[in-house]
Design a protein around this nucleic acid. Structure first.
Length: 668
DNA sequence: CAGTGAGCGAGCTTCCGCTTGACTT
């Protein structure tokens, strides 16, 4: 029997795909991510000795490592084909160091899983990039220091079980800061006046024009009096077209999806949370049984920060565009999309694995949500390689005495990529109506005036979509962590998702305030970007990992000591008194959230729950609803439990309050 | 696919970033 080579990748699906490409001479196995890490139970960083890490095999990865060792035995060549980025290099290195066959191990890296890319990667097999691994270790240690020093501080000063970290705490700060902006926002009244106009002797040429200027100055109407003055002055004036400007505007298609944009669009168009989106994408990636042999992967890898597309796929989609839409829709050269500055580009864009598998052809095999997500990914990809849409934009000036009105309209000249990307979904920028044909000098009839009152609006709270967008823009977190960051903030009860929008809790605000006051550097959104710059320098061999850690740790330690001394643990007294001894009750935090404890603890050990003040809707129950916390999130239960087992997701609706539509689907 | 829970307080909680099954009804 001939000796085989061993290839190690991260994911089982990737192993399957590569196995098919490489053929019989290779055994391809997966590591399922990292196999060793810092221990969970302790710091695992020797601060006295250059921040030396104490690594340990991740308990649940023990079996995997044993498998890898077994497979490594008797193989002539071992290729580590983990992702071509910082984490992938480190994962591979740790495998090499732990499977007991160091000498035979080589590193291969490719950015696309196509026969051409894989083949040339094996020809260019190389040694490990030690500087890259240094950078990863630096990143890991820094995160450990921040997380494992700040979290215990919170346990001591606020409540047990809390957490803080380089990423989650900054994400929390975004939400808390936004809430502050909203609270201090002062809405300003303003009025708009629209005129419904039509061409003389015409019955179906109505259109709307907006008041823009009065006597040459911008029309700013602060209140009803100002608006009334105008609405009284306008009738009787002669409306006349003074200017008609036409221009052609191109609208380019968007890049194919990467993780962050997929999460944004899936939330905006389908109301899927980031977590749900990733779960569904994983299912599409792993493959679905579509009646032929094995399950077949329907999309490329879903955790990526690069919009790059494999040349083979470009060729395929260009063929499809010509066939389905015609040559007019195909650009002379493939569209190329820019990579973000902080991207590590280990993977391709998220796209259909085979454009021949149209969403319609898979309808019978996919459940509804899978189908919707696949369709989104499919259409976005096709559209990304099509020609721009062309619109004819018209803007018209209309005078009525001293009053200047403006109207604008647009007409589609060429659909371009919008022929592929479902327009019904594409409601971001308001679709402008087409105007009737108008010419300079034309007189118009006023049908009616439509004054309307408005108020300036505060900035919106973050949603899954806008939070992920903000995180990505600031370089905070990675494709594999956007969704988990949100889950952590919810799990800790730092924020709640209300009708799809994040509101910080009192606890979240308190944690944020404490950290911001004592650790402003860590809480700065720029902290991660600065860290990334230093990691880049480590990768280039211009900076040592220990130096980076020392420079961070020295001032951090000082802040920590200062915080330990100066933050007072605050005790929250309530109006409630103890049933047993009459002393006031105080709020304490247990494993399952807040509860009331006698302030005389431990002499009096009485405790009780905090009730919501809302009666249990069960007939003849008489209990009150209490907010409970389980492993699966929050819910309301009856104070008479276990006698009454009533539960509900939210407090029963107040009378007269209307049900609002489109609550996003959530697992948190 | 939905459910979710009875003791918190004396021994334990926690980070970020890779990756998938993990429980039970």
């Amino acid at each position: 029997m001939k000796a085989k080579s061993l290839v190690i990748v991260e994911s089982p699906t990737k192993a399957k795909t590569i196995g098919k490409i490489l053929g019989e001479k290779f055994t391809v196995v997966s590591s399922m991510g990292h196999i060793i890490d810092l221990p969970q139970k302790k710091l695992g960083v020797d601060i006295e000795h250059d921040f030396a890490p104490e690594y340990a095999v991740i308990p649940r990865q023990r079996k995997i490592l044993d498998e890898l060792k077994k497979e490594a035995k008797g193989k002539d060549h071992i290729y580590i084909a983990t992702d071509p980025d910082r984490e992938g290099e480190a994962i591979g290195w740790h495998i090499r160091e732990n499977i007991g066959a160091k000498k035979k191990v080589l590193r291969v890296s490719f950015h696309e899983i196509t026969p051409a890319a894989v083949s040339s990667a094996f020809k260019a097999a190389r040694d490990f990039d030690l500087n890259m691994i240094e950078a990863q270790v630096g990143r890991r240690l820094l995160d450990r220091l921040v997380g494992y020093f700040l979290s215990p501080l919170l346990w001591k000063k606020i409540a047990r079980g809390l957490s803080a970290g380089r990423v989650q705490s900054v994400a929390l700060k975004l939400i808390v800061d936004r809430e502050k902006d909203i609270q201090k926002f002062n809405p300003q009244e303003y009025w708009e006046i629209e005129a419904e106009l039509k061409k003389p002797h015409s019955t179906h040429s109505q259109f709307l024009a907006k008041l823009e200027k009065i006597a040459g100055f911008k029309a700013e109407l602060k209140n009803k009096e100002a608006a009334d003055k105008v609405t009284v002055g306008i009738p009787g004036q002669i409306f006349k077209v003074t200017e008609v400007k036409k221009s052609e505007k191109k609208r380019n298609p968007e890049a194919p999806f990467i993780t962050s944009t997929l999460q944004q669009e899936a939330f905006n168009k389908l109301r899927f949370t980031a977590k749900r989106t990733m779960m569904l994408a994983q299912q599409l990636y792993e493959g679905i049984d579509i009646g032929q042999d094995n399950p077949i992967g329907l999309i490329t890898y879903m955790r990526t920060d690069s919009p790059r597309v494999a040349p083979e796929a470009i060729k395929e989609v260009r063929g499809l565009i010509t066939k389905k839409f015609g040559a007019d829709y195909l650009p002379p050269k493939p569209n190329v999309y820019k990579v973000k500055k902080l991207a590590q580009e280990a993977h391709e864009a998220i796209r259909p694995a085979f454009t021949s598998r149209t969403p319609e052809s898979l309808k019978d095999y996919l459940v509804s949500d899978q189908y919707k997500l696949y369709e989104l990914i499919y259409n976005r990809f096709i559209a990304s390689q099509m020609n721009p849409a062309r619109m004819e934009m018209t803007s018209v000036d209309i005078e009525a005495g001293i009053y200047l009105f403006g109207a604008s309209g647009s007409r589609m000249v060429f659909a371009g990529f919008t022929a592929a990307y479902d327009k019904a979904n594409d409601d971001q920028d308001k679709p402008k109506k087409e105007l009737p044909p108008l010419e300079k000098g034309m007189a118009l009839d006023l049908v009616k005036l439509l004054p309307s009152q408005h108020f300036t609006k505060p900035p919106p709270r973050y949603s899954d979509s806008s939070l992920v967008k903000a995180l990505e823009e600031d370089g905070i977190g990675r494709p594999s962590t956007y969704a988990p960051i949100i889950s952590t903030l919810l799990l800790r009860d730092y924020v709640r998702r209300i009708k799809g929008y994040f509101t910080p809790t009192e606890l979240g605000q308190k944690v944020c305030e404490l950290l911001s006051e004592y650790f402003p550097k860590v809480m700065d959104v720029k902290f991660t970007a600065l860290m990334e710059e230093e990691l880049d320098e480590i990768e280039e061999g211009r900076l040592g990992r220990t130096k980076v850690l020392e420079d961070f740790y020295a001032p951090f330690k000082t802040s920590l000591e200062y915080a330990q001394q100066h933050i007072k643990k605050e005790v929250v007294f309530t109006e409630e008194t103890c049933d047993k001894c009459g002393k006031p009750m105080v709020v304490k935090w247990g494993r399952r959230g807040k509860f009331l404890s006698c302030s005389d603890f431990p002499r009096c050990r009485n405790s009780k729950s905090i009730t919501s003040g809302v009666k249990c809707p069960q007939p003849e129950c008489g209990g009150e609803l209490i907010e409970r916390r389980s492993t699966r999130g929050f819910f309301y239960g009856c104070s008479n439990y276990p006698k009454c087992t009533f539960t509900s997701r939210a407090l029963p609706q107040e009378e007269g309050e209307k049900e609002k539509p489109a609550e996003p689907t959530s697992q948190d």
